[in-house]
Design a protein around this nucleic acid. Sequence first.
DNA 1: ATTTTGACGACGT
DNA 2: GACGTCGCCAAAA
Length: 114
Amino acid sequence: MIKDSDSFFDKVYFVARLIPFGRVTSYGAIAKYIGASRSARMVGWAMNNSHNQKEDVPAHRVVNRKGMLTGKNHFKGTNLMQQLLENEGVIIEDNKIQNFNTVFWDPNNELDIL
DNA sequence: ATTTTGACGACGT
DNA sequence: GACGTCGCCAAAA
């Protein structure tokens, strides 16, 4: 479970790793869940830094609130992020998740069922 | 040390 | 709904 002693970044990584296969969430949703609703940008920054983490973070499952793959240029290839998502059954077209409403996973709504 | 730049998002116009 | 502003705060310049 998340402890208050965990740093902001650690919380972001923790939540990101909880995203189920084939589901996605938004930076803002994560930020809100960890108690920093107005710091969505920091979540994005955390993702950018996620490759430094010991355990890999499924950063490809995190998009902005519109469901657009704004961070795809931060991945190796030009379409790696999209590839990974489509591999999980997510429909993507023009850098945007088509079935966003169905694959969206909000930790605030679904994680607190624990 | 100061300024700019973002994987963002909520609001106001 | 498109567009501009503002808040947010860590890095890089």
